[in-house]
Design a protein around this nucleic acid. Structure first.
Length: 629
DNA sequence: AAATTGTTGGAGGA
DNA sequence: TCCTCCAACAATTT
């Protein structure tokens, strides 16, 4: 007769009680006791980039989950344990006489490596491991297999595979009972403190990082959910809060509006809308698992089934948004570690962007540090990140991102295009890292996938379709309410100049209480606020970028090309690889000061084109002729 | 081989 | 508001 199961249910990213196939599997075991645990993975604390707002959201989720567990069983709660799962779990298996480990499968490259190791150890120790897929509509590995073993790179491929795989699984109801946990003794367990270097999150800490200081069960010894204070983090600034209770309320709000749900079309939702925003803001809940994507899918389906009018369809519909998520997860599942970088990634085009990542020679993985090939480009990057580019639309978005941890999808398009192929010509990996740090809904698969899309290195290739930081927001927000909200220096700027304040006559600037001057370092001059001059002439940079992309496409290297890996790609490009040089080596920004001294220079794109285009073409021929022979 | 399609560009004109 | 053109990528369909 075998003993009754003693189960660890390991909540990882997936923090939900509703529709957790893995939790259902754990309960199917009819365990004698169940330990619902969360482990502080030092990878998350130090190596992933996690800003305070995402920490806050996660802590909200944990508190809500813990309360949810206690509502079902007053003798149970979420147990938060401060140690890496690879070292901690084997000790717990022994200490708590565990028979089964159950968790939801994770296809992130690091998570897979970690979980494989854990499974191996569990196997050796005679602990049975049960995993279930629950993070996506379809199991990502199965999706890839159905896509002929290839990464899912288009939504059509996902839809074709989904048609073969059949309907999205029905969401599972929340559990009605949860067993007590057993003995919580940690007598025989010694905490192994993690190696904190490198620590990419140091900038967020006011005090010492303290998540491993109070022992495995935390400073109170009661396995409680940590506070930002305990983690040594500054206070969060986001108004968006986490937790399944809240997520279900949002979902209810969405589906109770039948027309919104049935006719939702992402490209026609305004990126400039705030309070309320134009989309549902469920992405952080999908990331942390405080909302099930399958529950979302079927709730939307119920509305569609009874909707009489003309409904929207994938890819622009709500279902389409969820399918895109599965697409990026499928691509990541198939490509693995290289998916999140250019190096070794056969699906990623090589473009000689500025500020390229340093690559670890042994592992081939990017290190998180980058090469400053041109100090001016680093200045552009810093000003982009800090919302001081001098383009109000870009700056407003970047400030909203830093403050609230969320910006609309099209806003992400605008800033991503601006940093990479439609402005700065800086590496998409730099932008992805900033988003990773600041977004509360950050998901490696979706973030990396979208950066590749926007920079035209994978998923998308129409690099000549470029977002203007002036014309694009004008389409949505003529008055510039969004800019006035997030860039308060410009709140009284006349509407005519709101997206290009450098054009405002000096009298108008003064009347609006702001001077367009400097690089954003200085905030005030006397009574007047200062707002920076633009980092460059947008139409000029746009042309440089488009020609650069054209060249890189014609060279045709990918992340796994030998020339990319050994650095000899440089032979295929001129030194100023991004395009026409024509005496702009010092950079167009240098000439800006003079050009805009009178604030009347017309920076309207597409004005100067015909003669210049020929010039660019000729230079391009020269730049890439080696590649063609 | 040519035509079509692809979630979300911009300008100019009717 | 809708249409065409711009100059032009790549995967898929015909």
């Amino acid at each position: 007769m075998s003993k009754a199961p003693r189960v660890i249910y390991w909540f990882r990213t997936d923090l939900r009680l509703h529709d957790s196939p893995a939790l259902a599997a754990a309960l199917d075991l009819k365990p004698e006791c169940l330990y619902p645990i969360w482990t502080w993975d030092p990878h998350y604390v130090y190596r992933a980039r996690v800003g305070v707002n995402r920490w806050q959201f996660l802590i909200d989720c944990q508190n809500d989950l813990s309360q949810g567990i206690t509502r079902i069983n007053k003798n149970s709660k979420l147990l938060v344990l401060r140690e890496a799962p690879q070292t901690l779990l084997p000790k717990l298996f022994k200490e708590w006489r565990i028979t089964h480990l159950v968790f939801e499968k994770d296809t992130d490259a690091y998570a897979r490596e970690r979980d494989d190791k854990i499974c191996e150890i569990a196997n050796e120790m005679g602990v049975r491991v049960i995993t279930k897929s629950g993070r996506t509509l379809y199991d990502s590995d199965l999706l890839v297999k159905t896509n002929h073993g290839k990464p899912t790179m288009t939504i059509a491929q996902v839809q074709a595979a989904a048609a073969k795989l059949g309907k999205v699984a029905e969401p599972l109801p929340p559990p009605t009972h949860l067993p007590d946990f057993g003995d919580l003794s940690l007598e025989g367990v010694e905490q192994e403190k993690p190696q904190p270097e490198p620590d990419f999150n140091r900038t967020h800490r006011t005090g010492d990082e303290g998540s491993y200081e109070g022992g495995i069960a935390g400073p109170k010894g009661d396995f409680s959910v940590p506070t930002l204070e305990e983690l040594g983090l500054q206070e969060a600034t986001t108004p968006h809060r986490g937790g399944e209770s809240l997520a279900l309320q949002i979902l209810e709000g969405v589906i109770s509006n039948e027309t919104f749900t049935a006719t939702f079309s992402k490209p026609s939702t305004a990126p400039t809308a705030f309070e309320p925003q134009s989309t549902c803001l469920t992405s952080p809940h999908l990331h942390f698992g405080s909302l099930s994507c399958r529950l979302f899918w079927h709730k939307v389906q119920e509305v569609l089934d009874k909707y009489k009018g003309k409904a929207s369809e994938p890819p622009t519909s709500l279902h389409g948004q969820l399918l895109f998520r599965d697409m990026y997860f499928g691509a990541q599942a198939a490509i693995g570690y290289p998916f999140a970088q250019t190096a070794m990634n056969d699906h990623c085009r090589f473009v000689p962007w500025h500020l390229p990542s340093k690559v670890d020679e042994k592992t081939g993985l990017i290190t998180g540090e980058y090469e400053v090939d041109d100090p001016q480009k680093e200045e552009w990057f810093n000003r982009w990140r800090d919302g001081k580019t001098g383009f109000p639309w870009i700056d407003a978005l970047m400030r909203q991102l830093a403050l609230e941890g969320w910006i609309h999808h099209l806003g992400r398009h605008a800033v991503a295009c601006f940093l990479t192929r439609g402005g700065c010509y800086i590496h998409w990996e730099r932008g992805a890292e900033v988003f990773e740090e600041l977004l509360i809904d950050h998901e490696t698969a979706c973030n990396v996938g979208n950066w590749q899309w926007l920079s035209c290195v994978a998923f998308y290739s129409q690099y000549y379709r470029c977002y203007s930081p002036i014309a694009f927001p004008q389409k949505w927000d003529k008055e510039g309410a969004f800019v006035r909200r997030y860039v308060p220096e410009l709140k009284d700027m006349p509407t005519k100049y709101i997206y290009e304040p450098w054009k405002a006559p000096i009298q108008d600037q003064k009347k609006a209480g702001v001077l367009i001057k400097g690089d954003g370092e200085q905030e005030k001059e006397g009574d007047l606020s200062l707002y920076p001059k633009p980092i460059f002439d947008f139409p000029k940079q746009r042309e440089i970028c488009i020609n650069g992309l054209k060249g890189a496409y014609s060279v045709g290297l990918h992340g796994d090309s030998p020339k990319v890996l050994d650095g000899t790609w440089k032979e295929m490009f001129d030194d100023d690889a991004e395009g026409p040089t024509e005496g702009h080596k010092g950079g167009p920004a240098g000439s800006l000061d003079e050009e805009h001294a009178h604030n009347t220079e017309d920076l309207n794109p597409h004005k100067s084109t015909p003669s210049k285009k020929r010039g660019a073409q000729t230079t391009l021929e020269n730049t890439f002729k080696k590649a063609r022979t």
